[in-house]
């Protein structure tokens, strides 16, 4: 399991190749990449600043990945989340999961993202032409995470 919080960008191909590691048991690699949009809630976003709570963030992400591993038959999982200043089209987050078959990899990848969105202590501040503002949490994210509670 790999969990990283970093300011630098990441190379998706290299990260996923490392995640697979030529493990012959792996038959499926699912990945999600989150990127910065230039429009949010009808406002133009010029810049995004991502902050987190060092110490808790890594612990929360490791806990989410451990939950996914307990729930699905997956081999490896990777979460990389960037912090600091980002611009539209920049990469924010990468989640990668390997398993024998696609069902487990897809499900675990989506679960990790849904929980990351609602439990990991990251916050976005947008710079718009009208000034800076903290991004509001979305009810839809809570609903997405709640789907897995059954």
């Amino acid at each position: 399991m790999t969990v990283r919080v970093q300011t630098e960008d990441f190379d998706v191909a290299r990260e996923l190749a490392e995640l697979r590691g030529r493990d012959p048991r792996v038959g499926a690699v699912a990945a999600f990449i989150g990127t910065v949009r230039d429009i949010n809630d009808d406002a133009t976003v010029n810049k995004l600043t991502l902050e987190h709570y060092p110490g808790m963030t890594e612990k929360a992400l490791a806990g989410i990945v451990a939950d996914a591993k307990a729930r699905w038959d997956i081999f490896e999982a990777l979460v990389i989340h960037r912090v600091g200043e980002l611009a539209p089209a920049d990469q924010i987050v990468l989640v990668g999961v390997t398993s024998a078959h696609r069902g487990e990899a897809f499900a675990a990848c989506e679960f990790i993202m849904d929980y990351l969105k609602t439990r990991a202590p990251f916050w976005k501040k947008e710079q718009t032409p009208e000034g800076a503002r903290w991004v509001e949490a979305r009810a839809g994210d809570d609903e997405a995470a709640a789907r897995w509670k059954k």
């Binding site: 987050v93 202590p121 990251f122 903290w134 991004v135």
Partner: peptide, 10 residues
């Protein structure tokens, strides 16, 4: 002890 507003990462 930390006080956290609703999170908005990802």
């Amino acid at each position: 002890v930390a006080l956290l507003p609703p999170v908005t990462g990802g």
